[in-house]
Computed example of a mutant assay.
Amino acid sequence: MSAYRGRFAPTPSGPLHFGSLIAALGSFLDARHFGGKWLVRIEDIDPPRCPAGASDTILRQLEAFGLCWDEDIRYQQTRGDAYQEALDRLLQDGLVYPCSCSRKQWRNHPIYPGWCRAGVREPGMPVAWRWRSDLGIRPVEWSDRLFGCQTLDPAEFGDVILKRKDDLWAYQLAVVVDDADQGITDIVRGYDLLDNTPWQRQLQIALGASQPDYLHLPLIIGPDGQKLSKQNLAAPLPYQGDAVRDQLYRALIALDQSPPKALADATVHDQLEFAIHHWEVGKLPANTQRQEPGW
């Protein structure tokens, strides 16, 4: 068994769509091709965005597409103590600070200008906790398995929030803590998250966590030129009937895995068996976007 440990970590703000399938399938095939484990983590740290039943729908969709996970599902809502422990450690090291500023106050700046770094500007007001991106290692350099050498300075993107004013945990800290705790070695996800990697690398180093390898997949663009997303009302993935088989075949085409035409009528199991055996990252186009394939 390989030491490879991958994961798919959707936010349950609604059902998966075709763009979600690309991310899930790419991470699944990569893990299975290398004989590794594939985990599913539900990133439900923002309850107002997560309608009841959405997590269950996502799991049913994954099962219908044959994307079966190897360990118990992790729900981030249960992980508050671990996130607080990490935040306390960063605070002790002087790497985070409380911030009372609102987005409206700094709307004329391209990034948050760090006004509260030297102290809270409005004492007594609710505060968020921000990461000192200027104090972490910079610039951050890493090699993406598709897009090659990357060099980005997190300070150019500002001091990201790790805990919100409403006491909800933010994505950047939660994802780093859980990837480390679950021993994730390889992260396969959409290109829209590539510029999150520098912050996450900084946090990994600050917390003494291992640094996974990254593969960012081209984003799927619909006929209207927009990224497929829940915000853009992308159609939910089916999880019954022949439509599942058809969508899986389309996803293999979108990932440029060259599935033979005869595979279009094969079962989900047979399509996955072929795709696992023939998975090649080198076939992926090194483009940030990929048009949704038609028929």
Rank of each mutant, 00 (worst) to 15 (best):
Q226C: 10
K104L: 12
C116S: 00
P139T: 06
A155K: 13
L219Q: 13
G119T: 04
T185G: 00
D159R: 03
D167P: 00
I187E: 10
A128T: 00
F157T: 08
C116D: 08
T151K: 06
N232V: 10
P236S: 02
L152I: 00
I220K: 00
A155D: 11
Q172E: 02
K163A: 12
A118P: 05
A170H: 07
Q200H: 15
A155Y: 11
I184D: 07
G222P: 09
A206N: 00
N196V: 06
V127H: 04
H216L: 04
P123V: 12
G124F: 10
V120E: 04
I220T: 07
P154G: 03
K104A: 13
N196I: 02
L219C: 14
G136I: 12
W169L: 01
D186R: 04
F157I: 03
Y171H: 10
K104F: 09
L237I: 15
Q226E: 07
G148D: 11
R121S: 15
Y239R: 10
F157A: 14
T151G: 00
W131G: 06
Q226P: 03
S133F: 02
A118R: 12
Q226K: 13
F157N: 13
P126D: 01
D178A: 03
A128E: 08
R138Q: 12
Y112E: 03
L168W: 10
P110W: 03
K165C: 04
D181R: 08
R107E: 01
W115Y: 12
D134Y: 03
D181N: 07
G136S: 13
P123S: 02
M125V: 13
R132Y: 06
Q226A: 11
S229E: 04
D178S: 06
D195A: 15
P212Y: 04
L203H: 14
L207R: 05
Y191L: 10
D179S: 04
G190M: 09
V127M: 02
Q231E: 11
P154K: 02
Y171Q: 13
Q172N: 05
K165L: 09
Q202T: 05
R164T: 13
I221D: 07
D224M: 01
P198L: 07
V177K: 00
A235W: 02
S143P: 13
P123F: 07
R117K: 14
F147M: 05
R201P: 11
Q150E: 09
Q105H: 11
P198W: 07
Y112A: 08
W129T: 05
A170L: 04
R138T: 13
P218L: 05
S143K: 15
G119A: 00
G222E: 12
Y171D: 13
S102N: 14
V176Y: 06
K230L: 07
V188R: 03
E156K: 14
A155E: 13
L168Q: 10
D195S: 15
Q105E: 14
R130H: 02
Q200S: 14
G148M: 11
G225V: 11
K227Y: 06
M125F: 12
K230A: 09
G158C: 09
D186N: 01
D167R: 14
I205T: 15
L215A: 11
R164W: 06
L168G: 04
D134V: 01
K163V: 14
W169P: 08
